[in-house]
Amino acid sequence: MKKTYTILILYRATDLWLSLTREERADVFEKELAPLLNKFSKTLNVRLFDSEAFHAETSDFIIVETSELNDYYYFIEHLRDTSLFGKPYIVLNDIIMGLENGFKDFEENEA
């Protein structure tokens, strides 16, 4: 049985991103991010969250769920080629990966 990994990608929007109009931001999303989300939609479940009202360092985060770590890796490589990282419009704060209830799998396989 494949394991499902959950990855939290914590990042901060830069002043360059914030200086764009909402229409310009939507354009970047549609031209650069939406095609990547579509490309990996069969193997990655990607959810986008805002957190700027609740956290000083992390303005946004992404939750990715996948059992295909290679596809996650390729997604990140493609993402790094976008203007989000290139301008940069965002700066990564942290990436955290985990297995839901991983201890149970460990205990069952080590018994």
Results as ranks from 00 to 15, higher is better:
residue 71 D to F: 03
residue 110 E to R: 15
residue 79 L to F: 14
residue 94 D to N: 14
residue 17 W to R: 05
residue 2 K to M: 09
residue 111 A to T: 04
residue 71 D to Y: 08
residue 38 N to H: 15
residue 15 D to K: 15
residue 11 Y to C: 12
residue 13 A to S: 14
residue 91 V to F: 03
residue 25 R to K: 07
residue 75 F to N: 01
residue 17 W to N: 09
residue 67 S to G: 13
residue 71 D to W: 07
residue 81 D to Q: 13
residue 50 D to N: 10
residue 67 S to F: 04
residue 51 S to C: 11
residue 54 F to P: 04
residue 108 E to K: 05
residue 83 S to R: 13
residue 78 H to A: 14
residue 5 Y to C: 03
residue 6 T to Q: 11
residue 76 I to K: 11
residue 66 T to V: 01
residue 34 A to K: 02
residue 104 K to G: 06
residue 25 R to D: 13
residue 52 E to P: 02
residue 107 E to Y: 13
residue 60 D to K: 02
residue 48 L to I: 09
residue 97 M to F: 09
residue 105 D to P: 01
residue 101 N to S: 00
residue 61 F to N: 01
residue 103 F to M: 07
residue 111 A to W: 14
residue 45 N to C: 05
residue 43 T to N: 11
residue 26 A to L: 10
residue 63 I to Q: 03
residue 81 D to V: 02
residue 57 E to A: 13
residue 43 T to A: 09
residue 70 N to V: 13
residue 68 E to D: 14
residue 83 S to C: 04
residue 92 L to Y: 01
residue 47 R to I: 02
residue 1 M to H: 07
residue 16 L to D: 15
residue 53 A to L: 15
residue 70 N to P: 11
residue 111 A to H: 06
residue 81 D to R: 05
residue 98 G to E: 05
residue 69 L to C: 12
residue 32 E to C: 03
residue 93 N to K: 11
residue 33 L to F: 11
residue 110 E to V: 13
residue 24 E to M: 03
residue 72 Y to G: 05
residue 109 N to S: 07
residue 6 T to R: 00
residue 76 I to A: 00
residue 102 G to D: 00
residue 20 L to R: 03
residue 34 A to W: 01
residue 13 A to I: 12
residue 63 I to M: 14
residue 69 L to K: 12
residue 51 S to N: 09
residue 47 R to W: 13
residue 24 E to H: 12
residue 4 T to L: 07
residue 13 A to D: 15
residue 34 A to Y: 05
residue 20 L to G: 04
residue 27 D to Y: 02
residue 99 L to G: 02
residue 22 R to A: 14
residue 42 K to C: 08
residue 60 D to I: 03
residue 58 T to P: 01
residue 101 N to Y: 10
residue 7 I to D: 10
residue 85 F to Y: 15
residue 44 L to G: 08
residue 54 F to D: 04
residue 29 F to V: 12
residue 85 F to T: 10
residue 93 N to H: 08
residue 21 T to F: 04
residue 77 E to W: 05
residue 69 L to M: 15
residue 37 L to C: 06
residue 96 I to N: 04
residue 36 L to M: 02
residue 14 T to Y: 01
residue 73 Y to C: 07
residue 5 Y to N: 08
residue 59 S to M: 03
residue 61 F to A: 02
residue 106 F to S: 02
residue 22 R to M: 12
residue 6 T to E: 04
residue 98 G to C: 02
residue 46 V to N: 12
residue 72 Y to M: 05
residue 48 L to N: 07
residue 86 G to F: 10
residue 109 N to C: 02
residue 71 D to K: 01
residue 51 S to Y: 10
residue 111 A to Q: 15
residue 27 D to T: 04
residue 42 K to A: 08
residue 108 E to H: 10
residue 36 L to H: 00
residue 47 R to H: 14
residue 14 T to F: 01
